[in-house]
């Protein structure tokens, strides 16, 4: 929040890494990369070389390029689903926590019902009904994660709404919408941001799991789950085929969590003072 944050500190490493990850995966189609689907059957399971830094897979495709595109797919699905779930879930939770009474009862009970379904099972059910692919995956994953946002938002609103500053804004004549979204919402942002990071990470894992089962991204499009699935089959011949996507998945989740942790601290005005001293 102050000028000190411009200086490089180790705490900012996750932010830079995430930025790198986002830039590379967003710009992947326009970067001078190979076609991730281009096969070269002569060079199946070829080791690392100058042209293919991470080597080539069972069809001779460049592993690095496929990893980049797989991360791109995973991130698009995960962020889209988490943002969608975050919007719906937070709105519902704030509304339920602030208005109490019947609205609260209805919203929270509906959420409880959704919460009863195991996420993976619900996703598998929807995918079997509507067919695999990102267009099904995003709304399904969003529905799966709406309840967690609602619960977090609801609980935080209950503790914030009894604070005097909320009463104070109401006594100034603020409308309910204003109280909910410009006074309460910023004050519950901390836990919601952590929830968001958690959701993105879990969505990446869930998306990989579904793809691994053949219910997510469809081959030949690259996906971390698919790559792990096929890598498993050729584990004895080329173990690196399994190691690379697993490492990429782990790294991405760690970066996301570290970044969101730091973000939450930074958004707290008290924190910037402590650091500024």
């Amino acid at each position: 929040m102050t000028g000190t944050s411009l200086k490089f500190t180790p705490r900012q490493i996750p932010a830079y890494l995430l930025a790198l990850l986002l830039v590379v995966s967003l710009l992947a189609p326009v970067l001078p990369l190979q076609d991730p689907l281009l096969m070269d059957t002569a060079a199946r399971f070829a080791g690392p070389s100058a042209a293919h830094l991470f080597g080539q897979d069972e069809f001779g495709r460049d592993i690095l390029v496929r990893l980049i595109f797989a991360l791109r797919n995973s991130l698009i699905v995960a962020f889209a689903a988490a943002i969608l779930a975050g919007f719906i879930g937070t709105a519902l939770g704030v509304l339920a926590g602030y208005s109490r009474g019947l609205t609260e009862m209805l919203a929270m009970r509906i959420i409880d019902i959704v919460l009863c379904f195991p996420p993976l099972l619900l996703a598998m059910l929807a995918v079997t009904l509507y067919g695999p692919g990102p267009v099904t995956l995003i709304p399904v994953l969003a529905i799966v994660f709406v309840p967690s946002f609602t619960r977090v938002a609801h609980a935080s609103v209950l503790s914030v709404r009894s604070q005097d500053y909320v009463e104070a804004v109401r006594s100034m004549g603020a409308s309910n919408a204003r109280v909910m979204f410009s006074t309460i919402l910023p004050n519950i942002a901390g836990p919601l941001i952590v929830q968001f990071s958690f959701t993105v990470a879990v969505t990446v894992v869930l998306e990989s799991g579904l793809s691994f089962l053949g219910l997510g991204v469809l081959p030949p499009a690259p996906s971390l789950g698919l790559m792990i699935g096929t890598g498993r089959a050729t584990l004895a011949q080329a173990p690196m085929l399994l190691v690379w996507p697993c490492a990429a998945l782990t790294a991405m989740i760690l970066i996301l969590n570290a970044f969101c942790d730091d973000l939450r601290d930074r958004l707290d005005p008290k924190f910037s003072k402590i650091r500024g001293q």
Binding site: D164, Y165, A168, M172, G173, S175, N187, P269
Partner: peptide, 30 residues
């Protein structure tokens, strides 16, 4: 909402009655 312009309130706990996310200036002009 319109009458609240004529009646304002000061609360007991000065630590709880200011929104921690607003600067003092923004709080006063809210």
């Amino acid at each position: 909402q319109s009458l609240s312009r004529s009646v304002q309130m000061i609360f007991q706990d000065p630590f709880a009655s200011l929104n921690p996310r607003l600067t003092v200036g923004r709080a006063i002009t809210e």
